[in-house]
């Protein structure tokens, strides 16, 4: 599961060519890496420093006459005392709690269903279909949600109407709106969990499962003791990736609710976007961005430590 991107062995150089030993400096790797590294500096690192700088400035695009004076940590203090910022973080966490357990359980369920199914053709078809939601443009998923969840003529209200419920104003009132965006996210990303779990299940040696079937007939015991250990690395990867993705989550929610009604679905990315591009308070938005960045970096470190351990040793 863990991968080694670099080899520390001595044979890494492909150059056993005669006479090349006396050359100490080989420009080839630098020439090959140079353009990519420069590009990543320009677009990956420089903007971060830019954000860091503006986070210490007063800067409102709507008030250019005030200039951009240095204000020290004022922006950070303002952000840390801002109830809306903590609210947005809290809602993002709430969204995580709504979606992750369901997605993981459903994903494992789907993987188990597909792994040993007797209906091979249907199983193969489903496996291909699982890719569709993942690949679908999140914006379009949001627009589609607008249609399906529509209060007056949406197909979801019609469906629950058949069993005598509703109509629910899915996007128009706070708690249903949160459930609605969670539902949409679950539709789009459970297949991702399922595919990762499926990859894990396929890596279980078939003999092992065979042998355990002789020991016990309880499906749960086989899953818990034989298959689950093979799933865990992949599921941990999914957990971190999905956490980062929820911190990034913007497209579908923006299209579905724009953070509303009120601020009931305003997740962290939506909130920062509002401060930066609708209030145009660059200083505050930058301070928020830097705080979010710190969170992202912590998660990245955990992920990399867990999954690429070999390279460090």
């Amino acid at each position: 599961m863990a991968v080694t991107p670099t080899s520390s062995s001595a044979d890494a150089r492909p150059l056993p060519a005669v006479g090349s030993g006396r050359r100490r400096f080989d420009p080839m790797p630098i020439l090959m890496l140079g353009p990519a590294v420069l590009a990543l500096f320009a677009i990956g690192l420089y903007p971060l420093f830019y954000a860091l700088r503006s986070s210490f400035q007063f800067s409102q695009l709507t008030k250019p006459y005030l200039g951009t004076p240095w204000v020290g940590f004022d922006n950070y203090l303002a952000v840390l005392q801002d109830g809306l910022f903590w609210g947005a973080l809290g809602r993002t966490f709430q969204f995580f709690l709504y979606t992750m357990p369901i997605q993981v359980v459903l994903g494992i369920g789907i993987a188990l269903l597909l792994d040993g199914t007797r209906w091979r053709v249907l199983g193969a078809v489903s496996r291909v279909l699982l890719v569709l939601p993942i690949a679908m443009t999140p914006t379009v998923v949001g627009l589609l949600g607008r249609l399906v969840y529509n209060r007056d003529f949406g197909v979801l209200n019609w469906l629950i109407g058949l069993v005598g419920l509703g109509p629910v104003s899915w996007l128009g009132s706070p708690s249903p709106a949160m459930i609605t965006i969670a539902l949409t996210d679950t539709w789009q990303w459970t297949p991702f969990v399922a595919l990762v779990a499926l990859a894990g299940l396929t890596s279980v040696p078939p003999d092992l499962v065979e042998a355990s079937r002789l020991e016990t007939s309880r499906r749960w015991d086989i899953f818990r003791n034989v298959q689950l250990p093979y799933l865990l690395p992949g599921l941990t990867a999914v957990l971190i990736i999905r956490t980062v993705d929820i911190l990034k989550l913007f497209d579908a929610v923006f299209v579905l609710t724009r953070g509303g009604p009120g601020v009931s679905t305003e997740l962290i990315s939506i909130y920062i976007q509002r401060v930066g591009f609708r209030v145009f308070d660059i200083g505050i938005a930058s301070a928020q961005a830097v705080l979010l960045l710190i969170l992202c970096i912590i998660l990245a470190r955990i992920y990399i430590r867990l999954f690429y351990r070999e390279i460090e040793s």
Binding site: T6, L48, V244, A289
Partner: peptide, 21 residues
């Protein structure tokens, strides 16, 4: 290598403001 991979984890909204400016 670590730095290159880290880019995957950075939320786009973090760099959206500086990119805009």
């Amino acid at each position: 290598w670590f730095w290159i991979i880290s880019n995957r984890f950075i939320s786009p909204i973090v760099v959206a403001v500086p990119f805009f400016l």
